[in-house]
């Protein structure tokens, strides 16, 4: 009789505790994110984002997009501008020749994927002649698209990534060999530039990824990108270094990532147009290396933010090639939109 009143509260307490434990278990099981919908749960220091570097001050943008020329290629790799501002876009297994308005003028079929292309302008001995860089050799085509020569292969370890034309010389960037090859117009190898000079502490061209561009400047010096050093370098035909500039930074005034710029082009006054990969930015620098303005920033070239940090091959950010036409407009080959985007300088 005395024990009954005291056993009821104990029983109720136990029942309440069991109920609470059961309810907590249910809540805990309910809160488990089995499908990863709430993210990885790691602290922010385990995250990686370039979002802060994607924004470009609008006051620094000196160009407007004025036109867009569609390119009917599955994978457009590179481009060049020829006489009368004709566009030569290399990709897939061909060179596509387009009028400035985008009309297809010709398609030159190739046996291998083109890596680079250059077309002789007014300053070249053969205006309109096309030099197509395959992986290890150069093929030469006449203005009408007929192959006139193919030069000797540089072997399986070569990877040609860019061609620049002087009046009587053809310069070819070999990314895998880390050298610039100098040919005459008949394809005879005259020499090579490796950028090395131990006396001046120059270690040559550092090329971590297969982007190694060059361009012939109006001052007669060859501009060569040294991507691993984040520099543009100017060389004489004999390979003497005359100028170097550029610095590594994600800031807008420099070149970002491990190795940039990926591509360059030159304006008539010697200014250098650069295109970076990773954080896609097209910018203009003076011939002395002073930052001038932005042509297009990441938000314009890569509107979907996550693409720059995407590891999937098929989603990965494409690299933009650049060229300049006779009106000083900057052309950007955008593989994402499969088009050549035309930028014109803003009127002050």
């Amino acid at each position: 009789m005395n024990q009954q009143p005291s056993s009821r509260p104990v029983g109720m307490l136990v029942a309440t505790l069991v109920g609470a434990v059961f309810a907590s278990g249910l809540v805990a099981a309910w809160r488990i994110d089995w499908w990863g919908e709430q993210g990885n749960g790691l602290s922010p220091r385990f995250g990686y984002s370039l979002e802060a570097y994607r924004r470009v001050d609008p006051a620094l943008v000196g160009y407007d997009e004025v036109d867009r020329v569609p390119v009917a290629l599955r994978e457009a790799r590179t481009m060049a501008v020829g006489p009368e501002d004709r566009l030569y876009v290399a990709g897939d297994l061909c060179i596509l020749c387009l009028s400035p308005s985008g009309n297809k003028l010709a398609t030159i079929a190739l046996e291998e994927e083109p890596q680079c292309v250059a077309v002789g302008g007014a300053g070249h001995a053969f205006p309109g002649r096309m030099y197509v860089g395959l992986k290890d050799r150069v093929e030469v085509y006449g203005p009408e698209g007929k192959r006139v020569a193919h030069w000797e292969s540089q072997g399986p370890k070569a990877l040609f990534t860019s061609i620049a034309l002087a009046e009587h010389d053809v310069y070819v960037a070999n990314a895998r060999g880390r050298v610039v090859l100098r040919y005459d117009l008949q394809g005879k190898l005259l020499g090579q530039i490796d950028g090395r000079d131990p006396d001046k502490d120059l270690r040559g061209f550092i090329i971590p990824s297969p982007y190694f561009d060059l361009a012939m400047a109006p001052d007669g010096l060859l501009r060569v990108v040294n991507p691993g050093m984040h520099r543009i370098e100017a060389y004489t035909a004999e390979g003497h270094l005359e100028q170097k500039w550029g610095k590594a930074t994600v800031g807008i005034e420099g070149f970002c990532g491990c190795c940039n710029p990926a591509h360059i082009a030159l304006l008539d006054d010697g200014s250098v147009v650069t295109a970076e990969k990773g954080l896609p930015r097209v910018k203009v620098y003076s011939s002395e290396g002073q930052f001038v303005c932005v042509v297009a920033g990441p938000e314009m070239l890569c509107p979907t933010a996550t693409i720059t940090e995407e590891t999937r091959t098929e989603h990965k950010m494409k690299v933009h090639d650049v060229a300049v036409d006779s009106q000083g407009r900057i052309l950007v080959l955008d593989p994402s939109t499969q088009s050549v985007r035309v930028f014109q300088k803003k009127r002050q």
């Binding site: 790691l42 990686y48 990532g257």
Partner: peptide, 29 residues
């Protein structure tokens, strides 16, 4: 100079993939 080798210490790695993103964003992946 200027080449460096990068080696993973498996005991310290937790598989967060932060370095994978950094490498893929600019480098060769």
């Amino acid at each position: 100079e200027p080449y460096y080798e990068y080696t993973l210490v498996a005991e310290l790695c937790i598989g967060c993939g932060k370095c994978v993103k950094g490498c893929s964003a600019f480098g060769n992946g």
